[in-house]
């Protein structure tokens, strides 16, 4: 057993497929979408937000399948809709990448590992979790996931420091959503509306043509 070989297959297999297509293409194929979402679903402990952190690395950083702006928008919609946030996110971003088949591939990729893992656990593996080594592994992994989430929060918060409006809005949203009695969706809608109203008020004329690219996360506007 070549340990590095296994690591390589787990982490980088879809990149090999990609190199045979157009060199600079950022268009994902349906099997690539499925493989990436399946892998994230299969190896990410810690639930939905941890999966979003890993997906961000996979589809924005490592491959440029969707833009930061679209990622945030998809994430906001995914949180607002009912159901598991990361499954909504998978469908919406899959659709953004490759239409309805992309949405189906991303959704199935995200759902199947969970289903397989749960049925395996329910049928055979339940005593496995009470094993002390496994419990220790899971505790360590959970701590690392906290660091991972903090990293994504940091990278998404950093661009907000460019403008006072964004900075204040992000802090208010974080505080509101931290109050247990407040539904995060309420925080999301309230803060988004406030920022939207502010941006609308600032814009003197509707000349939004040069903002079509919009990949700078709002930093370019002064």
């Amino acid at each position: 057993m070549n340990f590095y070989g296994i690591y390589y297959i787990i982490m980088y297999a879809p990149d090999e497929i990609q190199t045979f297509s157009d060199s600079k293409s950022t268009m994902a194929t349906i099997p690539q979408i499925f493989i990436v979402f399946f892998r994230v679903g299969a190896f990410t402990l810690g639930g939905g937000w941890a999966m979003v952190s890993v997906l961000r690395h996979e589809i924005i950083v490592k491959r440029t399948w969707i833009s930061e702006d679209d990622f945030s928008q998809e994430l906001a919609i995914a949180t607002t809709l009912p159901g598991a946030m990361v499954l909504n996110f998978s469908m919406l971003s899959g659709h953004r990448m490759r239409g309805a088949p992309g949405a189906a591939a991303a959704f199935l990729g995200a759902v199947l590992p969970s289903f397989i893992a749960i049925t395996m656990v329910a049928m055979f593996l339940f005593p496995f979790f009470s094993h002390s080594t496994v419990a220790a592994f899971l505790r360590g992994a959970a701590a690392a996931v906290a660091g991972l989430l903090a990293h994504v929060a940091f990278t998404m918060f950093k661009p907000m420091m460019a403008r006072a409006t964004y900075l204040i809005a992000a802090i208010v949203a974080a505080l509101l959503a931290s109050i247990p009695a407040v539904n995060p969706i309420f925080a999301l809608i309230l803060v988004t509306s406030a920022v939207f109203w502010k941006l609308k008020a600032e814009k003197p004329a509707p000349s939004g043509v040069n903002k079509e690219t919009g990949a700078d996360g709002g930093k370019g506007e002064t």
């Binding site: 949180t79 929060a153 809005a169 709002g218």
Partner: peptide, 9 residues
């Protein structure tokens, strides 16, 4: 929507 999403995370 970006500041609110950053806040939620």
């Amino acid at each position: 929507v970006q500041p609110a999403v950053a806040g939620l995370i």
